[in-house]
């Protein structure tokens, strides 16, 4: 860091700044929230315009599976929060175990989602299918939104799972450790966001009857 003119700029965009990474992550989460926010506005308006159809359609969804997945995500949120505690305390092995649990839970969520979706598609409820096209006014909108919103959410779960896998690898190598854990923290923030969105999706689609 020597300069001929013998000074060092006090702040540099090229040096490590964990606080900046965290702020950046939060800002990114805001954009994610508003991305889903647009869909929630569509949901709100169409629910207002097609009240009865939305109620009827929501009976098609399986409350049991929805609740199960809600619990899965909540528990996974706790395990990743614990993983960060573990890293901060220097308990690397425990951190890895907790992260692996989180990853496993994300798979459980996706498998359940897969069965839910295939059942719906089997009934011809996917937009564009014959049965879907014959649905009464409003009900087709419900399923269009159901597939878009849970689909986009599932995509976020997949991305989150990949990020967690990276954190696992880096924690095992010791690259994430008690002095340097911004990556784990940010992965945690992202994972909690996925959880937050599900917390709203669940009642709006499964519990409105």
């Amino acid at each position: 860091m020597e300069h001929t003119s013998g000074f060092v700029l006090p702040n540099s965009g090229h040096s490590r700044d964990d606080e900046a990474s965290k702020l950046g992550m939060w800002l990114f989460l805001f954009t994610e929230l508003l991305l889903f926010g647009g869909l929630f506005i569509v949901y709100m308006v169409y629910r207002m315009l097609n009240h009865e159809s939305f109620l009827l359609s929501s009976f098609e969804l399986n409350v049991g599976l929805g609740s199960f997945n809600t619990v899965v995500l909540l528990v996974s949120s706790m395990t990743i929060a614990m993983a960060i505690t573990a890293v901060q305390k220097g308990e690397q092995q425990k951190a890895v175990r907790l992260l692996v649990t989180t990853l496993a839970l994300s798979f459980v969520f996706l498998v359940v989602k897969y069965f839910e979706w295939s059942a719906k598609i089997h009934h011809g409820l996917f937009p564009g299918m014959d049965y879907y096209n014959g649905l009464p006014k409003g009900e087709s909108l419900f399923f269009f939104l159901y597939f878009i919103m849970t689909g986009l959410h599932a995509l976020h779960i997949i991305i989150g799972a990949v990020i967690i896998a990276v954190v696992i690898a880096r924690t095992r190598k010791g690259l994430v450790n008690k002095d340097k854990y911004a990556l784990a923290e940010n992965a945690g923030l992202y994972w909690h966001l996925v959880d937050l969105i599900w917390i709203y999706l669940f009642p709006l689609f499964y519990l409105i009857h």
Partner: peptide, 27 residues
């Protein structure tokens, strides 16, 4: 840095599960 304890995390989870139960029961 504030390090949350494992026990705190358990408590938070319990609160969340309880709220989930309430919302399902109401529905």
């Amino acid at each position: 840095v504030h390090i949350s304890s494992y026990r705190d995390h358990w408590r938070t989870l319990l609160t969340l599960l309880l709220l989930t139960l309430v919302t399902i029961v109401i529905s």
